[in-house]
Amino acid sequence: MLDTDTIMMLVEGTRDTLYMTLMSTLFGYVLGLPMGIILTVTDKDGIRPNAAVYKVLDVIVNILRSVPFLILLILVMPFTKAVVGKTYGSTATIVPLVIAAAPFIARMVESSLKEVDPGVIEAAVSMGAGTGTVIWKVMLAEARTSLLVGVTIAIGTILGYSAMAGTVGGGGLGDIAIQYGYYRYETEIMIVTVVVLVVLVQILQSIGMMVSRKLDKRK
């Protein structure tokens, strides 16, 4: 049952899944990290309160987060086509994954940054630190452990989403599980796929936690 072809397929699937997950996480942070920072900074207790900016971003994030991923996947197909040139395959899947992940990442970043002791921020301001310095050297630096835990959670969640994208030809392990396990009743391949997914999540989770623990100097 697990002949060379199947194993090759699984290896490729794993590669595609990792590619989608990591690229989506990366671009998700490219969008989500600034959003999270702006949400924190412009909030009424932030260092640059701005009710209008906060509210607009807050609503956008909430709307995007309320749309179920599967619906989003289909809704953004025209946009995906415009960006990537096609709507199937792993590269195409990155587009909806990023759109789904960014607002979720923004919220996690926001909650991490809000954990930073306001007293430490006040101390930095009292030393004459500007907004940029406070964000970069105080907020992000002090919250780094929490931010890394967030990255780990984001990777796990995006991995799950990427498997879901398999249903619409997204490629990767999710695709294989659906194609073989669901449509062709090859339960064994489905089980193997799921096991690979579980192992992947475990590995990524452990690495993330290890790094964040290493970087935490608060104990």
Partner: peptide
């Protein structure tokens, strides 16, 4: 104008 605080407010992730 330096300032020190009741709860010290040091950066916890720095030596």
């Amino acid at each position: 104008i330096g300032m020190i605080f009741q709860h010290f407010n040091l950066l916890m992730q720095r030596t």
